[in-house]
Write a protein that binds this DNA or RNA. Structure first.
Length: 551
RNA sequence: GCGCCUGUAGCUCAGAUGGAUAGAGCAGGAGCCUUCUAAGCUCUUGGUCAGGGGUUCGAUUCCCUUCAGGCGCACCA
């Protein structure tokens, strides 16, 4: 909101008159308690100490001068131990409505990111099985972060990293191959680690149907064939699930392509140039310990193959080479121990620590009939994202995933998410939007029309505490988005929306919008609500949740 | 053993870089539908911010420590 900006100039000159410097820290901010006005400042406390002044007197002086400087937009008064509270005029708040109307879908967007190029990587699940609900949380967070950062002025690309070069994928091939042979009536011995799960059998059956002679292939070729077919099949399924979940990736990036190309060599060269690599015990090492890790890590094993870490370094090196300024990875929280070594790699590449961030996604506990449902891909007892979305819908599940700090565990109670009442916050928020739309429709039926962009005269009747409370909340929107972006915390958005929706419902119960004999008031309130609906829409858009016109 | 995260109302959780009397929702109690969607609203009960130290004008927030949970410590991915 431009509220702070409006007063900054005036405040600066007042401080100059008093012979005081503008403090480095933010001086005015919205107070926690609305009783303290619209903006509150502890400037007196911040300044009184170094300037050796009495905080109460200083607050008083600043308040008086501020009133005198901008009587058109604000009233200020000294309060408490050195606080200076500012209250804006009604007209100031009314001006927000045309602002929202003019900016429409872009209301709340800011330019703080100044076009910085961001690459967000999320999901990146091994294509060895369908996405489960834990992946869903990462997907929702990653996708919404992309939307959030775009609104905050960043240029955002998104990627899914496919681990198609490692052991897990070989295992997938073996699992399908053996299933196929089994289905063909051949006797097979199962290795210790293999993928159970019905989808493996389905894929094997499908392959046999297409090629009955499959099992006559030699083991090597059969495994390879199965691996490739299964991976593509599963990846297609993953893509379809994400599409249903409204999650997008601009690119799918293959680990294999790093190994096949020169990306790994280039990354190794970069690390070597900085003097962080060495040979020991027949392996090739990266001295991460010098860079804050617990111990040094192997890049190329004794048997000549690359570690996961090695290709991952190459991947991140490649991301930077492609011109991205800020890499954000969304990982499962169980990988948090991996962060120090990745940070070490970033540093060894000569990149800023601030150019790499990891958003950790904690466990999702799926609860059904009051009991937790286990989920292990290997054991095949998972609850898939597909099943969950089919049961409760994309909107409800996305909102649920995004309503808590991603770094803390989440109980996903199917019975709650399915509910269509206020216990399920997504309905509460969507209902606010639908309600406004219903009122607007009703008004239109009665022939009440609003211009696309309203003006001060039309909005002048907005003067009840409820009117102004809604405007104040709507004014916070852009600031909230910017802060959420900076903190990489999407849950601020869902919380904000719940609050805003609550205020709207309260408003609706208290204030009749369409007043039969007073079209002046009616038009003002309709304009207000139309603007609020726009804010709700924009907020839901960040979450990737729809804003229905009626429910 | 080392490292990371968590601990806020009976339950699920917010509290953004220290600020005024710690907030929501659910659950419990009492009310509101012959005007715009009751999928809603209003009021109310409920707290030693895990315990203890420290830093300062001031701490739920920062530092140390104890306790209780979760996770991670591979030439796996």
């Amino acid at each position: 909101m431009h509220a702070v900006d409006c007063l900054t100039g005036a405040l600066q000159s007042i401080l100059a008159e008093e012979g005081l410097a503008w403090p480095e820290k933010t001086v005015i901010e919205p107070p926690r308690d609305p009783r303290h006005g619209d903006l509150s400042s502890n400037v007196a406390m911040l300044l009184a100490k170094p300037a050796k002044k009495n905080p109460r007197e200083l607050a008083q002086t600043i308040a008086e001068k501020l009133c005198a400087a901008r009587p058109d937009i604000a009233h200020a008064e000294a309060a408490g131990p050195g606080f200076c509270n500012v209250t804006f005029t009604e007209a100031f708040w009314h001006a927000l409505v045309p602002e929202i109307e003019a900016q429409g879908d872009r209301y709340g967007d800011t330019t703080g990111g100044s076009g910085k190029k961001v690459l967000l990587e999320y999901v990146s699940a091994n294509p060895t099985g369908p996405l489960h609900i834990g992946h869903g949380r990462g997907a929702a967070v990653g996708d919404s972060l992309a939307r959030l950062l775009r609104r905050a002025g960043y240029t955002v690309d998104t990627e899914y990293y496919i681990n198609d070069a490692g052991r897990q994928m070989r295992l997938l091939g073996v699992s399908v191959w053996l299933r196929a042979k089994e289905l063909h009536g051949m006797k097979v011995t199962w290795p210790e680690d293999y993928y159970h799960g019905d989808y493996i059998i389905d894929i094997a059956r499908e392959m046999l149907a297409k090629d009955p002679a499959l099992c006559e292939l030699p083991d090597d070729e059969g495994r390879e064939r199965c691996y490739e077919y299964a991976m593509n099949e599963i990846l297609d399924g993953i893509k379809a699930d994400m599409k249903d979940f409204r999650v997008e990736h601009k690119r799918f990036f293959s680990e294999k392509s790093l190994v096949d190309g020169h990306a790994v060599d280039a990354a190794f060269a970069a690390l070597g140039k900085a003097g962080y690599t060495y040979d020991k015990d027949g392996a090739f090492w990266f001295a991460t310990q010098q860079l804050g890790d617990d111990k040094d890590r192997v890049l190329r094993k004794q048997d000549g193959s690359l570690t996961y870490f090695a290709t991952d370094i190459a991947y991140h090196h490649d991301k930077f080479e492609r011109g991205y300024d800020w890499l954000i990875d969304v990982w499962g929280a169980d990988h948090h121990g991996y962060i120090p070594r990745m940070r070490a790699a970033i540093q060894a590449m000569g990149r800023e620590q601030a150019s790499f961030d990891v958003v950790l996604i904690q466990l999702v506990n799926l609860i059904k009939d009051g009991k937790p449902v286990g989920m292990s891909t290997r054991a095949g007892t998972f609850e898939t994202l597909h099943d969950v979305v089919a049961e409760v819908g994309t909107d409800a599940s996305r909102f649920m995933f995004l309503s808590r700090k991603s770094d803390s565990p989440l109980d996903f109670d199917l019975d709650v998410v399915k509910q269509r009442n206020l216990e399920n916050p997504v309905y509460y928020v969507q209902y606010a939007h639908a309600r406004i739309c219903a009122v607007l429709r009703r008004a239109a039926e009665r022939g009440i029309r609003l211009p696309d962009v309203t003006d001060a005269a039309l909005l002048a009747p907005l003067s009840t505490p409820e009117d102004l409370a809604l405007l104040r909340k709507a004014a916070e929107f852009g600031n909230m988005l910017a802060q959420a972006a900076q903190a990489l915390a999407v849950h601020h958005v869902s919380r904000y929306l719940s609050d805003l929706a609550g205020m709207l419902h309260s408003y609706y119960a208290k204030q009749q919008v369409i007043v039969a004999d007073d079209e002046v008031v009616t038009r003002a309130r309709l304009a207000l609500l139309r603007a609020i609906a726009q804010v709700v829409r924009n907020g839901l858009d960040v979450l990737g949740v729809t804003a229905p016109d009626q429910m």
